[in-house]
Design a protein around this nucleic acid. Sequence first.
DNA 1: GCTCAGGGTCTCG
DNA 2: CGAGACCCTGAG
Length: 294
Amino acid sequence: MYRIQINHMDLDQIARSGQCFRFERKNQPGDIFSIAAAEYYVEAAKEEDTFLFSCTEEEFHQVWAGYFDLEADYGGYKSHVASDDTYLKEAVKWGWGVRILQQDLWEILITFIISQNNNISRIRNSVSKLCTLFGEEKKGKGLVLLDDGSYGEEECIYHAFPSPESIKAAGLTGLAPLSLGYRDKYILSASEFASEPEGKAWLMELLEADYKKAHEMLLSQYGIGKKVADCVCLFGLHHVGAFPIDTHVKQILESHYPQGFPLERYQGYAGILQQYMFYYKLNHVKTGESVPSL
DNA sequence: GCTCAGGGTCTCG
DNA sequence: CGAGACCCTGAG
């Protein structure tokens, strides 16, 4: 186990922020979160003002510190919000613990192709089935709440995110149980491409590309349009200047920024603010509404 | 039952 | 360019 203090971070808010689909609160005592990313797995819980992780200090710094974007200055991002922008100020206040995770490129590519014209609970189901059916089964460590109120470690089983080759091998027939709808052919196409040397080279090039080039490269792929390309840039390549406009953000811009969102003001990190707004719209509870479940 | 929307993209005119 | 089609499913 490893204990660390982290500011500007809330596990539940991140789990509900719509950027990751294998990060969830466990239905167990102790408010424990299970977090699967690419081939890794960890569980985490908050203990007073620190976080507890079910991994070693070494693994935390090799894998999870980057994943949680710990080098970034979220206090700085927040402080740049225009003082007269009441909507954004409220959104940041509400989602104070949201961060932009640095996720695996392949996993983001596939999960955000699945996300198009789809809803978050359905995306979660599809991604979950994708991993249990075609991802390698691995042994990991989780957390348990002990009788004395402290946490212990526990062996557990999880599934890695499936490789391009294993999705390709599944074929459209194998993908059918995921209820991907018409997106199945996009997923298969991407997996076929990424199984070839040409596709692997393309992925390596994508990792090195700047935002503009990466966006252009992504648009060339079957099933990837402007919006998904921006999500891959933001969540899979950590180009935090990318500003994906989906149906929710579009509605926010229409009702709160009729003159247009001041992208210039937040150049280079507008994606961070996009995420606060997205989280706020989906999760802030107006009186009489229930909290959306995961 | 029915309609509608959900972190859009493709195809066709 | 713009309009429609598109798989599927839960909410109203």
